[in-house]
Amino acid sequence: MRDAPAILPDRGLADRISAALWRHPKAFLGLLLALPLLWLGVVYLGSLAALLLQSFYSIDEFSGVVKEEFTLKTYAELFRAQNLDIIVRTLLMSALVTLACAVIAFPIAYFAARYAKGRWKALFYLGVMLPLWSSYLVKVYAWKLILAKEGIVTWAAEGAGMGFFLDAVLALPGVGGNSLSTSPMGTFIVFVYIWLPYMILPMQASLERVPGSMLEAAADLGASGGQTFRTVILPLALPGVIAGSIFTFSLTLGDYIIPQIIGTSARFIGLAVYQLQGTAGNIPLAAAFAVVPIIIMLIYLTIAKRMGAFDAL
């Protein structure tokens, strides 16, 4: 032992590189960030800027050519009744889907965070992630069949003597329709199903970080279950709920496939963008439409921040 050197010999290039990075921590940081910065900064933000720029152009109504002059005319078009309709419909759907996802996800996430151990935890992750492994389109078409007039939901409802209930739901103005798969109700159900994992996972992660002793402390001090939920669990889990709602909200805001396949053919923002930049060739209006979800999300996050959603981060 006495003869061992104080400095161990280099074992090769890898050792010399790691030593050099140890001596220059800033270079190491730069190396770590180079690729993401290039991607985020140039490719992603760059295309976003290009999109923003496009939205300030307008289209010549006769020739259909994009006029590359700065104008707010395209944005003014968003406020036409038919376009405003699309925005309000999308916003309402996103809000409802987010709310439903939060309500459904909470007990699942709570169970996983508080009670599930070992095998049950594995089952939870599998159960939540499994739907993400299969194609989005396959799932949506599967739901179209499930919700169709001849589908399993109708069949089960009639078999259980609940056919009248289904008919009553479908007869509701605004949400009902010919069958579930051709009603706004159906669009809603499929949206909730498709985005639910994105709400469960962040919620579970944030609930996981609330120590059990905190809930015991609340009960110990006399809080009822409801009080503990409102004053301790919810505030501490709020960052997770907000993170989840950002997913469900923005994914619903931008989706253009589900409303095409399931529901009435009423247009949503995503579908409008898709059609405007494709068949209609109205890139400026498509860009202006695409800016709407960005602005809505910014407003949403500002409100969330004001409410203290990120204080516990």
Partner: peptide, 20 residues
């Protein structure tokens, strides 16, 4: 009797103060 109905209070090992 559940914990919240017992006139007994606890100082927890990790204190369990509410961080928010």
């Amino acid at each position: 009797v559940p914990p919240n109905k017992r006139n007994v209070n606890t100082v927890f090992q990790d204190y369990a103060l509410f961080p928010h």
